[in-house]
Write a protein that binds this DNA or RNA. Structure first.
Length: 857
RNA sequence: GGGUGCGUAGCUCAGUUGGCUAGAGCGCUGCCCUUACAAGGCAGAGGUCACAGGUUCGAGCCCUGUCGCACCCACCA
């Protein structure tokens, strides 16, 4: 293809993405051995909403690494996955279609959703539909969303092999998730337990520690009187949750607290309900807080759970799974009709309603001391939740994660040290998370769109369910759906019948699938040959905010299943900040959609912005950087057009590089390649880009200007062949160096004069450049460029055109630098349009410029 | 309470073994239609490198402390 007269960026994205797809440019060759392969464990984006610049930011960075490794000769395994299972999708489906899943409803084969589209948000009540109908809608919408994501990624030029794409709800992922779970069970790493659990009352599901988020909320501190009994005096406590007084099981103070020491072992009676509770001691009670003594309820917060467990207190739960107080008082042992009547005023109320009522009652009985004091305090939320979490007792599945096992915890910390973190300090976030784990990983969710547990339970003759000995699916049948399939040895008709079975109704935490992305993408036991060529993988790129979830969980699963790290390196990308330095997020309403920026500046320009962000560093969203990227791309087009115009569009001019200036350029180019290589090997795509860009601008401004006249000359003249050879060699290398960052424009220029794709070309070869540079000394180029710059400055100061003729240029400099300049003095004379260039020794560098007589000042 | 990162030109940021007058881009100002590029090019102004000590011949870079910002972790009644 020839060099166009008027090069342009328009249409490059569509043209080249189609070509790459047709040519299979990024196709993975699975016949390669492990040692030849560079495998990437790509983050599967959550396909539950709009696309934002944060995704573009991190994925572009990963892609630059993939492209670099490919050019270095590695066979790059770079798949894409879609994380479509889980609550995020369910929420989106609810809003999008105006429906709600009610598992008690029967399947309706002719169901069509009442509405469609996000803006239809929840004016009308949601229509309840069956679980199979709901799951079908989830599948329908995720397919639409996944296509939109793929289009975006293609526009961004992610060099993934699209034939490798997986989804976290897909069959491969389900099989891997269930298999890994069964292995965990077999090794005793997964277990079920009935225990107090953090519970989201809106989504009606248990949530795990990793999904918690503290939020500052307005609250009020209530000072409340507990009544002395058996001759003891009253005790005042402070609480933010007076509605839980009926769930109170004890008061607790620090064992060394002299104020309460005499009371330990005695009892007090709760206000309103008159329930006798013991006064107990525990070191977690803080004498500084409140009145120094706290009430323990089942359960107000996670500290209550610890006290309850360690002090072996009774259970008096009042919180329902719907976030309302349950009907009828808890087991108070001694029941008082008045107390019962008071409790019944609270039953069925939400937390806030119950709190109000309790305060009224306390005020009436005189047990509220003073008025409630407004405070701000942190409250635990599910990270995507609207209301605070409650704690209810439920049966759940867990995987051991080191929270209760020091040896496992130490092993995981050691794994963290074996992993290569980029940047290295990202590891501290992992370590503080592992060190702070306080519960095993709760992996069951009371939700619908997810991977089911491959588990059934026997139903006894009296219809009681036997949770003690679950029936597990056998591995050869995976994936299974226990809600529609019967366990071995049973028939479907026995479902729910005495002597029959029931399926486990829960689904796995989405992270219990996502934590297996290496096994899913690499096809694990489905394709052991492929797995052996890919696992453990080379790179895990991801955001820092999911170190505690995705990274930790993946490392844990790999440690348990394979006794190895899942990857060798991890690259942690930063946040995208809006211009006000706030993290961009949908909830803050400050996100911008990438597509408008692709259209306005071009994909390469958007990538340029993303790849200017240093590894791991939070980076401001900056249109200015995109403008710069666009300018750079256009400059590459034009400079290439010039080079190929004078040097010809046939690669390899055959001439030797002989001129000192040309050799100096190539010596500098070799240095650049070494530096860019070192940067990329350390995952510093930004440094590689910055250095390459700097060299390129100098090449355009200085070198091209210096050799312009010489390269225009007829082939026979001395030095012409040297210049054109150097120009070609440099353009060739620069296109390769820019290719990982700016895939479209480099491919376009490459196509003007080279065979194949630049993205399958090799990374520039330093020894070859050194050989071509021969004795080249960078100083020649440096001094020549500085001299040229001084002359330009003189002309600018004189307010004359740069093509104005110059009578005389006198360069004052040290002998060493003058000697260097001597090799390029003809080029300097031509470029400055000077009649003569004279060199005079001096202590420091300076240039006298005498403009032509007619223009001279 | 513990931890991590960051504080360099009006703005966004480079500055990797401590080394000559601290850099880039944007923005601002001025000049130039130079046969690759006017949706461009060239040049200029602009900085007590948060602050205070210390190590060193020499510190933006190393050490100590202080202040500020962001984030992470934690049993916050």
């Amino acid at each position: 293809m020839a060099v166009p007269d008027k090069p342009s960026l328009d249409g490059l994205e569509a043209k080249w993405s189609a070509r790459w797809d047709a040519d299979g440019t990024y196709r993975f060759d699975r016949s390669k051995d492990r040692g030849e392969i560079y495998s990437i464990d790509t983050p599967p984006p959550t396909v539950s909403g709009s696309l934002h610049m944060g995704s573009v930011f991190g994925y572009a960075q990963t892609d630059s690494i993939a492209r670099y490794r490919r050019m270095r000769g590695d066979e790059v395994f770079y798949p894409m996955g879609w994380d479509d299972n889980g609550l995020a999708t369910e929420r989106r489906v609810q809003n999008y279609y105006g429906v709600r899943c009610d598992p008690s409803l029967p399947y309706d084969p002719s169901f069509e959703p009442p509405r469609q589209g996000e803006d239809a948000k929840a004016k009308e009540p949601e229509v309840p539909i069956s679980r199979p109908n709901f799951v079908a809608l989830c599948e329908r919408l995720t397919q639409i969303d996944e296509q939109a994501f793929e289009d975006l990624w293609r526009r961004l030029a992610l060099s993934v092999d699209w034939s490798l794409t997986y989804t976290t709800i897909g069959e491969v992922a389900q099989r891997a998730s269930q298999r890994a779970f069964l292995h965990n069970v077999a090794r005793g790493e997964a277990y079920q337990a009935e225990a107090p659990t953090l519970w989201d009352v809106d989504d009606r599901t248990a949530v795990a520690q990793a999904e918690l988020e503290d939020k500052e909320r307005d609250g009020a501190m209530h000072r409340v009187r507990f009544h002395g009994v058996d001759g003891g005096s009253d005790i005042e406590i402070e609480t933010t949750r007076p509605e839980l007084i009926p769930a109170c099981v004890a008061l607790v103070a620090h064992p060394d607290d002299e104020r309460f020491r005499p009371r330990f072992g005695s009892e007090v009676a709760s206000p309103l309900f008159g329930v006798r509770v013991p006064v107990v001691a525990h070191t977690l009670a803080d004498p500084e807080k409140g009145s120094g003594i706290a009430m323990i309820c089942t359960f107000g917060d996670v500290t209550d759970v610890i006290w309850w467990r360690e002090l072996q207190l009774p259970m008096r739960s009042v919180m329902g799974r719907d976030g309302r107080l349950v009907a009828g008082p808890p087991d108070w042992e001694a029941t008082d009709p008045l107390a019962e009547e008071r409790y019944n005023q609270l039953a069925g109320k939400t937390v806030n309603q119950a709190r109000e009522r309790v305060v009224e009652l306390l005020r009436a009985t005189g047990d509220l001391i003073g008025e409630p004091t407004p405070i701000k305090h942190p409250v635990k939320f599910y990270e995507r939740g609207k209301r605070p979490l409650e704690i209810v007792t439920t049966r759940q599945w867990y995987i051991r994660n080191g929270a209760r096992d020091g040896a496992l915890r130490d092993a995981l910390l050691e794994r963290g040290r074996q992993l290569q973190w980029h940047p290295s300090h990202a590891r501290s976030r992992y370590e503080s998370w592992v060190e702070g784990l306080n519960t095993d990983w709760l992996i069951s969710r009371q939700r619908f769109f997810g991977v089911p547990f491959p588990v059934w339970y026997r139903v006894g003759e009296g219809s009681e369910i036997d949770y003690q000995e679950p029936l597990f699916a056998s591995e050869e049948h995976l994936p299974v759906d226990p809600s529609s399939q019967a366990p071995d040895g049973f028939r479907e008709e026995q479902r729910g019948q005495p002597g029959g079975f029931i399926g486990d109704p829960d689904v796995l935490d989405t992270w219990a699938t996502s934590s297996l992305t290496p096994q899913i993408a690499d096809r694990w036991e489905d394709d052991p040959d492929l797995f052996a060529r890919l696992f453990p993988t080379d790179l895990r790129p991801q955001g820092g905010e999911i170190i505690r979830t995705w990274l930790f969980a993946t490392l844990l699963r790999s440690h348990l299943e394979h006794d190895s790290l899942p990857w060798r390196d991890t690259m942690i990308n930063g946040w995208v900040l809006d211009p006000d330095r706030k993290k961009m997020s949908k909830s803050k309403g400050n996100v911008v959609t990438p597509i408008t920026y692709f259209e306005q500046f071009g994909s390469d320009a958007v990538r340029y912005w993303a790849l200017s962000g240093r590894p791991g560093v939070d980076t401001a969203f900056d249109e200015g950087q995109m403008k710069v990227g666009r300018k750079l791309s256009i400059k590459i087009l034009n400079a290439s057009k010039f080079v190929l115009g004078v040097a010809g569009d046939t690669p390899g001019t055959g001439a030797d590089v002989t001129a000192p200036l040309d050799r100096a350029l190539l010596a500098g180019l070799a240095d650049l390649v070494e530096e860019a290589t070192r940067a990329f090997d350390g995952y510093d795509y930004a440094r590689a880009l910055e250095r390459t860009e700097r060299f390129f601008w100098s090449f355009c401004d200085d070198y091209v200007e210096l050799v312009k006249q010489r390269s225009y000359s007829a082939e026979t003249e001395s030095g012409t062949g040297s210049a054109t050879a150097a120009l070609q060699l440099t353009l060739d290398a620069l296109l390769r160096l820019f290719a990982p960052h700016l895939p479209f424009v480099t491919e376009e220029v490459w196509s003007w004069w080279q065979e194949g794709s630049v993205h399958r070309a090799s990374w520039p070869d330093v020894p070859a450049l050194r050989a071509a540079a021969a004795d080249g000394a960078s100083l020649v180029y440096v001094v020549a460029a500085e001299t040229l710059s001084e002359v330009r400055k003189a002309k600018t100061t004189a307010q004359v055109s740069l093509r104005t003729d110059v009578e005389r240029v006198v360069v004052h400099d040290t002998p060493e630098r003058l000697e260097a300049l001597r090799g390029a003095v003809d080029d300097v004379r031509e470029a400055t349009r000077a009649q003569s260039v004279e060199l005079e020794e001096a202590e420091t560098f300076s240039v006298d410029v005498v403009l032509a007589a007619s223009d001279a000042a």
